Amino acid sequence: MDPNRSFGEMPMSLFTPASDDVAQVAPQPRGKTSPSYLADHRARLRDRFLQGGATAMPDYELLELILFRAIPRQDVKPLARRLIETFGDFNRVLTATSARLQAVEGAGPAVVTELKIVEAAAQRMARARVMNRPVLSSWQDLLDYCHTAMAHREIEQFRVLYLDRKNVLIADEEQAQGTVDHVPVYPREIIRRALELNASALILVHNHPSGDPTPSDSDITMTARIAQGADSMGITIHDHLIIGKSRELSFCSEGLL
């Protein structure tokens, strides 16, 4: 963990294949279908998924299932493997930026679209478990949502969860995005938005793309400043969560808040 990383501070279908992807596939003579071995491979992979689920499938095979829709007449295993090699695992493929995905050979607009649909679906399902519900009594669901939304991102993101008097989550908003080790934070904007929403409490959340959730000195200082501003308005900061790749750190549990 780089002790010098810091927040910036201001004062208080589904879709048919896109033409780019189709162009990557070798032209098929009229009336000729894809080789039978491709159809057989796809059928076997789908059957394995339907019978046993995704648990026993390696990441590249799960990616293949998604890529089948985007590239219907080509062996997509090489592309699936390239994506895993480039980004590291299934989750990081889904959360990679569109520009970085398209930089991978064979990943055109249709491929990116399918991957982003899956990412959006996963986030929406996780978010549905916590929105408009008492957060403190469903803490694990909240952690699961934060990991789904933020753990594998390549840049820092700062989110604020706004709660009402019953600790029901009434808004989940991205306050800022930054770089790989820096995100600008606006304490006055956070407090102003809390007052607009009539929020009684906040949970601060940001990720560390390095994977290590250990807080820097500036993380701790900034959290204290936000908490001080919130306290002056009668707003409680329940916690500040730093989301790493495989675990999170709670300021409250660590005695930092």
Rank of each mutant, 00 (worst) to 15 (best):
M1G: 10
P3A: 10
N4W: 09
N4G: 02
N4E: 12
R5V: 10
R5P: 03
R5N: 07
S6F: 11
M10Q: 09
P11N: 06
D21A: 11
V22S: 07
A23Q: 08
P27C: 05
P27V: 05
K32E: 15
T33L: 09
S34N: 00
S34I: 12
Y37P: 00
L38H: 05
L38M: 06
A39S: 11
D40Q: 15
H41E: 13
A43Y: 01
A43L: 08
R44A: 10
R44H: 05
G53H: 10
G53I: 11
Y60G: 00
L67R: 08
P72R: 10
R73V: 15
R73M: 14
Q74W: 14
R81I: 15
I84C: 07
G88D: 06
R92T: 09
V93F: 04
T95V: 07
V112N: 11
V112S: 14
E114G: 02
E114K: 08
K116F: 07
A120D: 12
Q123M: 14
M125K: 08
R127P: 00
A128K: 08
R129P: 00
N132W: 06
R133K: 15
S137V: 11
S138H: 14
W139D: 01
L142S: 03
L143M: 10
D144I: 12
Y145K: 02
T148I: 12
M150Q: 05
E154W: 05
I155Q: 12
V160R: 04
Y162P: 05
K166H: 13
N167F: 14
A171M: 09
D172K: 01
T179A: 10
T179S: 13
V180N: 11
V180G: 05
D181G: 13
V183Q: 02
Y186L: 07
R193S: 06
A194I: 10
L195A: 12
L195Q: 14
A201W: 11
H206P: 13
N207W: 07
G211T: 02
D212W: 03
D212H: 03
D212A: 06
P213L: 12
T214M: 09
T214E: 12
D217C: 09
R225G: 03
I226S: 12
A227S: 15
Q228V: 07
A230G: 10
D231S: 15
S232L: 15
S232Q: 15
M233S: 14
I235R: 08
I235V: 15
H240D: 06
L241D: 00
K245P: 00
K245S: 09
R247K: 11
L249S: 00
S250F: 01
C252Y: 09
E254L: 01
E254W: 02
L256I: 02
